[in-house]
Design a protein around this nucleic acid. Sequence first.
DNA 1: AGCACGCCGACT
DNA 2: GTCGGCGTGCTC
Length: 780
Amino acid sequence: MSMDEPVSARLADVALPVPLPRALSYLVPEKLGESVTPGRRVLCTLGSRRVVGVVVGVREGEPPPAAKPLLEVLDGISLPNDLVVFLQRLASYYLAPIGEVVRLALPPADREAERAVEELTLFSNAKGIAPRKVQWVTATDAVETSLKEKASHILAFVRAHGSLPVSRLEEQFGAARATVKKLVERGLLTMSEREAQRDPFFAETIAQDSPPEPTEPQRAAMLAIERALEATVESEKESDKGPDSKRAGSTFLLHGVTGSGKTEVYLRAIATAKKLGKGTIMLVPEIALTPQLVNRFRARFGDEVAVLHSALTARERFDMWKRLSAGEVDVAIGARSALFAPIRNLGLVIVDEEHDSSFKQEEGVRYHARDMSILRAHMHGGVCVLGSATPSLETEQLARSGKAQKLALPDRARAQEMPKVSIVDLRNIGAGPTGDRKLSILLHRAIEETLAKKEQSILFLNRRGFAPSVRCESCGELSSCPQCTVALTFHKKYGRATEADEIGPNGIMRCHWCDYEAKVPPRCPKCSSDRVALEGLGTEKLEATLAEAFPTARIARLDRDVASGKDVEKILARVRSREVDILVGTQMVTKGHDLPHVTLVGVINADAALSIPDFRASERAFQLLVQVAGRAGRGDSPGRVLVQTYNPEHHAIQFAVRHDVHGFIDRELRDRRELMYPPFSRMALARIDSLDEGEAQNAAAELAKAAREVARTGELGSLDVLGPAVAPIAKVRNRFRFRVMLRSASRERLRLGALAMHGAIARLPRTVRVAIDVDPVGLL
DNA sequence: AGCACGCCGACT
DNA sequence: GTCGGCGTGCTC
C-alpha cells in the first residue's frame, strides 16, 4: 500500500427517485453498519431535500468528495437481492434512470401511506374496519321434488358452482331472494354469512380440480419444460455459487393455436416448479386477467396464488407484496408489472399471449415485459415460457436463432377441427339486401344460415372512427403518405370527423408522422372511380342495419363504449348461455374464454387494422385475424370465418387465411419481415420527420445511418420504439430534444446509443430515443 | 424531478 | 433600487 492511497470508507450506492442516470454513493455511518444492505430503503440527503432511496450496492471504497452520510435505514420492506440486480440490468438495458426503475418494483405506497398501512396491520386485529358480511348459499344433498322453473334453474346454478353469494344469483336471475328463501325452507340450500371479499378474483369459492389427461403434443411440451426446470435445480446444486453466478436458463416458445391447451401446459409447469421448490411469475395481457382465468389457477393451486391486478387497493397490494417476499405464496399472476413481483426462489416465468402489445410499457420507464421476463428467468438460471398462437417476430426470431426452443401444440385439444377461413373480396362482391357495403351478400347469407341452424355469429370490427382513412371502394386503393408508407387520416378542415361526416369539399388527409397534407381526391388516382370513401366509420350503424336485416335475431354489442369492466363478462355470459344470436364487437370479442356455440365469425373490414399508422400494423392485423378466427367453431361444427377485405392479396391477410391446422406460417422470417415492415431507413425517417424540419433532417440522417448499420449486421428480428419517438422528450427554446438508443444484434451499442450510455447525452443538441431492438435478449 | 443560482424587466 | 421570470445545471 502506498502512502498516498486515498481513504477508504464504507459506501452505499443508493437509487433515488430522481431521473439520475446512476445511483449516488453515500457514507454508511458506523451506527447503521450491518443494517445497510442492498434492497433496503434508506433516508438520505439530496441537495437540500431528504428523500427515500433504495440501496443497490454496498462497498468499501474512496468516497466521492461530496459524499454525505446516510441518515437512517427504514424498516419494513426490503427488495430481495436478486430483484435489485435485475432492476440494475433492466435500467442499463433501457438506459433508464435507476431510481425510476427501482420505483417500479416497490409496492405502491409512499412513506406516509406505508407507515399508516403498517400501523393498520399492527393494530387492526382488535379494532379496525369490520368486514362487511354477505349472504352465501350452498346446495345441500337433498333431492328436489317438483320445482318451479326458476327455482330449478337457481338450484342447478348453485350446484354447478358449489356455493356462491346471493348477490351473484341476483346478477344472474334478477330478483332471486324469494326463490332462494323457498329453497332454503325446503332444505335444498343452506344460507351462511361470510366476510365480503373486495377482491373480485376471490369472490367465489373454487372446487379443486385435477389435471386432465394431456394430448400428445401437450405431454411433449410439458416434458421439455419439466426437464429444463429440473436442469436449473441441478446446475444450482453443482455451481452453488449463489445468485450472482451466471447460469444459463432456457427459453421456450409455446406455439399453440387457440384452444390447443396452452394453459394446461402452464399449469403443469407451475406444478413442477412448485415441486422443485421454485416460484413462478405468470404475465398475462391486461384484458386477459379475468376471474375465469384466475379461477382456473386457483382451482389447481388453491389460494397459493397471488393475483396482482389493478383493482387491488394499496393496502391489498402491500399485503400481497409482503406475502410474496416472505415466501408464503410462490405463484404470482398479473399484467406487465407483475414482472417485478418479489417471488422467492424464482424458477419459472411465463408470458401468456406473448405477442400482446400491453406488455410494452409506453410511458415513464419504457420496458418490454416479455423481453425482461427472459432476462429475469435467465438471471436465476430458470425457465421462461412464451406462449402464443401468433408469436411476435421477436420471439419467432429467438426460436429460429436457437435462443428459444419451440414447442408446438398444433391441434385443438378437444379434437375439434380448425375453422374454414375464406376471403370476401369487397371489390367484386356487392352488398347484401341491406344495401350496406359493410354487409356483403356472402356474409349476409352466412349469417342467415347460422341463424337457421340456431348457432351463433360474431361480427368483428375494428373501431377507429376517430381517425378514419380514405379508401377507394372500387379498387381498394388506400391513401397513404408518399414518404412514410402509412395510411393518411381524414380530417375535416375544422374539428374531427364524426359518424355523419361526408368527405365534402373541406376534407383533407394528413400523415400522422410527417404532417404531409393533401386534399381528398374526388376520383381514385389508381382506377379513376369516384367511389372514394371513409373507412372506419359507421360502426354503430352496423348494429342498426343488422337489427333491421335480421329482425328476429337477438343482437348484442361488445365494445368499450357499451361495456366497461364487469359488463364484459356479463355480456359474454349471455352469449355463452345462448341468449344472443349475433355478437357485434371490437377487439374485446377476441379475448376471454370459450364461446362454445359460435360457428360463424365475420370480419367486417380486415383492412381497418392494416391502415393504422404504425409500422407494426400488418403484424397486428395478422395476429388479430388469427385470434378472431380462433373464436369460430368450438362445438361439434368446425365453424367458418369470412374475412371481408379490399386487399385479398395482402400478405397479412394471406398469412392469416393460410394459418391452417398447424397454425404455422410456412415462410422464412426474412420474407415475413420484409413483407410486413416498411424498409428500415424509411421507417426511421418517417418517425423523425414529425419532430421539426431542421433538427429532424439531421437526426433522421443519423438514425437512418444507424439503422443501415443494424441492417448490415443481419439477424434482423425486429425493430422497436421504446422511447418518445414521435413526441420529443423536451422542447427547450423551440428546439427539440430527443435521445437515440440503438442496439444491434452483436450487442454493440451504436454511436448515439454509446453517447447516451456515457452521459454525454445532455450535451447533444438533439437526441432521439428510439430503440432498435434487434435481439431482445442480445444482452444475455 | 426538485431546487438553487443567475441574470434581465415592471413595481411597492 | 429589488421582486420575480424561468433557463441552466447539479444533486453523493
